[in-house]
């Protein structure tokens, strides 16, 4: 069994993100471990707690949150990439904190640590 680090760069409106989620679920189901998932580029949009989906569609933001709750897999968000795309952890008056609690606010340094430690690195 191996330890994996995943990098997700696609947005919640892209079905490729669902592929990444199911890949992560399958890794755990098959007995592997995930030391962390790093959300970079448009992948950071998955952390936006205001993402809505009609009730008969998969809401990827909620799906990642549920995955984190069930598996305790660290979901790291690149805050620099996030801020460029309207995500913020600021509590200042003009801002509203919109990053879901199940995501950990990180920087690219975390990408280095995760990919260096893991046996396998998969970019999805």
């Amino acid at each position: 069994m191996s330890s994996f680090a995943l990098i997700v760069t696609t947005s919640p409106t892209d079905n490729k993100t669902y592929t990444a989620l199911t890949f992560a679920q399958q890794l755990l189901a098959d007995g592997h471990s995930i030391i962390g998932i790093f959300f970079y580029q448009d992948g950071v949009l998955n952390a936006n707690q205001y993402v809505q989906a009609p009730s008969d569609e998969v809401n990827l933001y909620q799906a990642w949150s549920t995955f984190q709750k069930q598996s305790a897999t660290p979901l790291h968000l690149c805050i620099t990439a996030g801020e460029r795309r309207g995500l913020t952890d600021s509590n200042e008056v003009a801002f509203s904190h919109n990053i879901d609690d199940h995501f950990t606010i990180s920087g690219l340094g975390e990408l280095v640590v995760l990919t260096c430690k893991a046996d396998k690195v998969i970019q999805l």
Partner: peptide, 19 residues
């Protein structure tokens, strides 16, 4: 998109961690 810039950012951070 922003691919070139975000690739460069990642490369510079990796290098700063002496990878």
């Amino acid at each position: 998109k922003f691919n070139a810039k975000e690739a460069l950012d990642a490369a510079l951070i990796l290098a700063s961690y002496e990878m």
